[in-house]
């Protein structure tokens, strides 16, 4: 089953118009498709926004998702990264309790994962970690026993590998 209900990462280039996010989100909810994460921001051309959506479903559902996304008038391009090479990064900000006896341990973990401490208090560190979602998960697993106060994740963003851009 796992391979059937696989995760898929899709980039959608859309007109940077009023309501476009609702159109895309509404399409997913209205047709019963899953959204695991969604991130969106303008591109170099500020009339175009780029969304990165992580979804799951079997082949038939994924085909419907890409077709339905393409059908939206505001959609300029849909890129499904299944079966293609891409780089994937996610960022997390993690606020960890840091007492006398855990401060050093926390810093060591930050170091190993090439994170940065972006805010410090007497009782906490807030760190920034960037990497593939699996790396973020590994950091979280290590920090949990120490005590995570709060966390925010950006959701992954992806780009295809190689020299070409989405429009050639």
């Amino acid at each position: 089953m796992a391979s059937h209900e696989a995760k898929h990462t899709i980039s959608v280039l859309v007109e940077n118009e009023f309501g476009v996010l609702t159109r895309v989100a509404g399409l997913f909810s209205g047709r019963g498709f899953n959204i695991e994460s969604l991130s969106v921001a303008p591109t170099l051309d500020d009339s175009i926004s780029r969304m990165t959506i992580v979804t799951s479903g079997d082949e038939r559902i994924l085909e419907q998702i890409t077709k339905q996304l393409n059908k939206l008038i505001d959609t300029i391009k849909v890129i499904d990264f299944t079966d293609s090479e891409y780089v994937e990064r996610e960022m997390a900000l993690i606020k960890v309790q840091a007492t006398e006896d855990t401060r050093a341990e926390v810093l060591r973990i930050v170091d190993i994962f090439r994170g940065n401490v972006v805010d410090v208090t007497a009782r906490s560190y807030t760190m920034e970690i960037t990497g593939a979602p699996s790396k973020i998960k590994a950091v979280i697993d290590l920090l949990k026993p120490i005590g995570i106060q709060e966390i925010v994740r950006s959701g992954p963003v992806v780009l295809g590998r190689g020299a070409k851009g989405w429009n050639g």
Binding site: G19, G30, I73
Partner: peptide, 13 residues
Amino acid sequence: VGITRSITKHNYL
């Protein structure tokens, strides 16, 4: 516009 988003081919404000 919100109400008819899923029942129009497209809509505009």
